[in-house]
């Protein structure tokens, strides 16, 4: 059969670079929706080479791989090097659920001094550094859709959303960016 097909992600070629704000589609990544009770956290952390965060709204990251706390037994694991995350967890025998959602999500990188304000056009959470410090992450809403928001730097966020909502999320970010 033919060679493997390249990923054709949503938002191909979409970006915005305006005063104080940049919107870029994130590079393709592998993603895992990881569900596990406390009993499996240790072995999963070991298998992934990354401590699964235990506190709400926190994340851990290492070498292009990150684990975002989404709920008391739920994490989103992202690997920017497109490593096989399902395979990594396959060896863990403790009860857990590792489901590949690499293609379910699309991510938009929102950065610049205006990033916080632009996101607050649709996100009702307090995104000040005190309330949402670097590394903080949360599933939340953005306008009329759900996103996962992760602050990677003081002025940089990663917005993960479902593939078919990415057009809406990008357009709303763009509209918000117009509001100087």
């Amino acid at each position: 059969m033919a060679d493997a097909i390249a990923r054709a992600s949503a938002l191909e070629g979409r970006f915005l670079n305006d005063e104080g704000i940049t919107l870029v589609r994130a590079e393709p990544a592998t993603r895992l929706s990881l569900r596990a009770p406390k009993t499996a956290v240790k072995s999963l952390s070991k298998a992934l080479g990354l401590d699964l965060p235990q506190r709400p709204k926190t994340s851990t990251a290492k070498d292009g791989r990150a684990a975002l706390w989404l709920g008391p037994d739920e994490w989103l694991v992202i690997d920017e090097n497109e490593a096989d995350l399902v395979g990594a967890c396959a060896s863990v025998s403790a009860f857990h659920s590792a489901v590949d959602v690499s293609h379910r999500n699309t991510a938009i990188l929102v950065s610049g001094p205006r990033a916080e304000a632009v996101l607050n056009a649709g996100c009702p959470q307090d995104l000040s550094l005190d309330a949402f410090p670097v590394g903080a992450c949360s599933r939340t809403v953005f306008g009329k859709t759900e996103i996962i928001l992760w602050r990677t730097e003081k002025d940089a966020f990663r917005v993960e959303c479902w593939r078919s909502f990415s057009d809406y999320v990008f357009m709303l970010l763009k509209a918000a960016a117009r509001d100087r």
Partner: peptide, 12 residues
């Protein structure tokens, strides 16, 4: 006494 779901948060 009522139930709520943090559906767009931790989903609990």
């Amino acid at each position: 006494y009522e139930r709520w779901r943090h559906i767009h948060g931790c989903a609990r």
